[in-house]
Amino acid sequence: MNLRLIMLLGAVLLVFVAVFGLQKLQSEGLNDFLDNMPIPAVSVSVAEVEPMNWANYLAAVGSARAVNGTQLTTQSAGLVTEIRFNSGDQVKKGQILLLLDDDTDRSELQALVAAAELARADHERISRLFDQGSVSKADLDRAKAQADQTRGQLASQQSRVSLKTVRAPFDGTLGIRLVNVGEYLAPGTAVVSVQQLDPIYVDFNLPEQQLSQVHLGQTIEAGFDAWPDQQFEGTVTAIEPAIDRGTRNFRVQATLRNGDQRIRPGMFSRVALDLGSADDVLAVPQTAISYNPYGNAVFVVVEKEEGEGLIVKRRFVRTGRTVGDFVAVVEGLSAGERVATSGLLRLSNDSAVEISDELPLEPSLAPTPNNS
């Protein structure tokens, strides 16, 4: 019995040893296969480093502003008796736009006209009598003071009557009417806005470091989201003499012709200030740049040294300004080299790559995306 038990235990032990040995061999073989398994090539799109000639300009964002623009308000209280304009009208300087009830004021004006005329006549009569020696100098002075006082009261009342009429302060375009006939208006009530739209200003800010590059008469191009396919040209007409202490920026004013009134006050604008020269640069699409805290890099596509196929080499570069979909590379690349422009997140140094058959998006110096 003891011999049979020992033989059975030995057989079981051999089976366990055989099973564990087989599993170990399979695990080692699988690990060896995975360690030596070739990594599939990453499909990427590529672009060549291109030499380009870029116009030299300063970019900024600005806002359109009317040369003259204001909200017309009443200076006197009264009931609206007549409105002589429609919303959106073109008006001339001095044109009457609105009348307030002025019957009471005109009645007082007539009384003061009569009083002023009487005081003037009295002064002339006393003056003749003084020349004849019939009245004293004090009588003449009182008559003159009375005439001056009534003339002042008359002028003051004429001014109050004129405040009952709202006139256009300059040539321009009216906005939307805010009052109605029969409405009682308090002093300072808004009536309508008026804007002089041609020409029009575009104001923008630049850093103080660029002050030496800006001067009067420089050409600018301004783009507006309302007219994405059009650039508006203007000239620099004023430069703020002081630098803002908070932002260290200075303000520049450009004047643009706006005969068709496409540009409206308050519009956001992208401004390019022409510096009058051009730069030769090496440029790549912006999608080729891998932006990292420790430096910007690209993946240069090269052929394998040991055989057919392509790999990428990570190379750190120094970038310059951007124009459209391109970025200038100041240092790190040569003209004609190829860089990966897609799939950058799957790449590392010496990764095998293959060029994708799909047509890549063509970068542009002046992209016009369709946001509809």
Results as ranks from 00 to 15, higher is better:
residue 51 P to R: 15
residue 52 M to L: 08
residue 54 W to V: 03
residue 55 A to Q: 13
residue 56 N to I: 02
residue 57 Y to G: 13
residue 58 L to D: 04
residue 58 L to A: 02
residue 59 A to C: 08
residue 61 V to T: 13
residue 62 G to R: 11
residue 62 G to I: 14
residue 62 G to N: 12
residue 63 S to I: 14
residue 63 S to N: 12
residue 65 R to F: 05
residue 65 R to E: 15
residue 66 A to V: 11
residue 66 A to N: 12
residue 67 V to S: 02
residue 67 V to C: 00
residue 68 N to T: 08
residue 69 G to Q: 04
residue 69 G to E: 05
residue 70 T to Y: 07
residue 70 T to D: 08
residue 71 Q to I: 10
residue 71 Q to D: 08
residue 71 Q to C: 10
residue 72 L to M: 13
residue 73 T to Q: 14
residue 74 T to D: 05
residue 75 Q to H: 13
residue 75 Q to I: 08
residue 75 Q to M: 14
residue 77 A to W: 08
residue 77 A to S: 10
residue 78 G to S: 08
residue 79 L to T: 05
residue 80 V to T: 01
residue 80 V to A: 00
residue 80 V to R: 03
residue 81 T to G: 01
residue 81 T to A: 03
residue 82 E to Q: 11
residue 82 E to F: 07
residue 82 E to W: 09
residue 83 I to D: 05
residue 84 R to C: 13
residue 84 R to H: 09
residue 85 F to G: 00
residue 85 F to C: 01
residue 88 G to Q: 09
residue 88 G to K: 14
residue 88 G to E: 07
residue 88 G to I: 07
residue 89 D to K: 03
residue 89 D to M: 02
residue 90 Q to R: 13
residue 91 V to M: 00
residue 92 K to T: 12
residue 92 K to W: 15
residue 93 K to Q: 07
residue 93 K to A: 15
residue 93 K to G: 01
residue 95 Q to H: 09
residue 96 I to R: 15
residue 96 I to P: 10
residue 97 L to D: 09
residue 100 L to C: 10
residue 100 L to E: 00
residue 102 D to H: 08
residue 103 D to K: 12
residue 103 D to M: 00
residue 103 D to S: 03
residue 105 D to E: 15
residue 106 R to T: 08
residue 107 S to T: 12
residue 108 E to P: 03
residue 108 E to K: 02
residue 109 L to Y: 04
residue 110 Q to A: 09
residue 110 Q to H: 07
residue 110 Q to Y: 11
residue 111 A to E: 15
residue 112 L to F: 04
residue 113 V to K: 12
residue 114 A to K: 05
residue 114 A to S: 14
residue 114 A to D: 10
residue 115 A to D: 14
residue 115 A to L: 12
residue 115 A to K: 04
residue 115 A to H: 06
residue 116 A to S: 13
residue 116 A to C: 14
residue 116 A to Q: 13
residue 117 E to V: 07
residue 117 E to T: 08
residue 117 E to I: 04
residue 118 L to Q: 13
residue 118 L to R: 15
residue 118 L to M: 14
residue 119 A to T: 01
residue 120 R to Y: 12
residue 120 R to T: 09
residue 121 A to V: 08
residue 122 D to S: 14
residue 122 D to Q: 12
residue 122 D to L: 07
residue 123 H to R: 05
residue 124 E to V: 13
residue 125 R to Y: 09
residue 125 R to S: 08
residue 126 I to N: 14
residue 126 I to E: 15
residue 126 I to Y: 10
residue 129 L to W: 03
residue 129 L to F: 06
residue 129 L to Q: 07
residue 130 F to Y: 08
residue 130 F to W: 07
residue 131 D to K: 12
residue 131 D to L: 04
residue 132 Q to T: 10
residue 133 G to A: 02
residue 134 S to F: 04
residue 134 S to A: 11
residue 134 S to E: 06
residue 136 S to G: 11
residue 137 K to D: 13
residue 137 K to V: 07
residue 138 A to S: 06
residue 139 D to N: 06
residue 139 D to S: 14
residue 139 D to P: 03
residue 140 L to H: 02
residue 141 D to A: 05
residue 141 D to L: 06
residue 141 D to K: 04
residue 142 R to P: 06
residue 142 R to M: 11
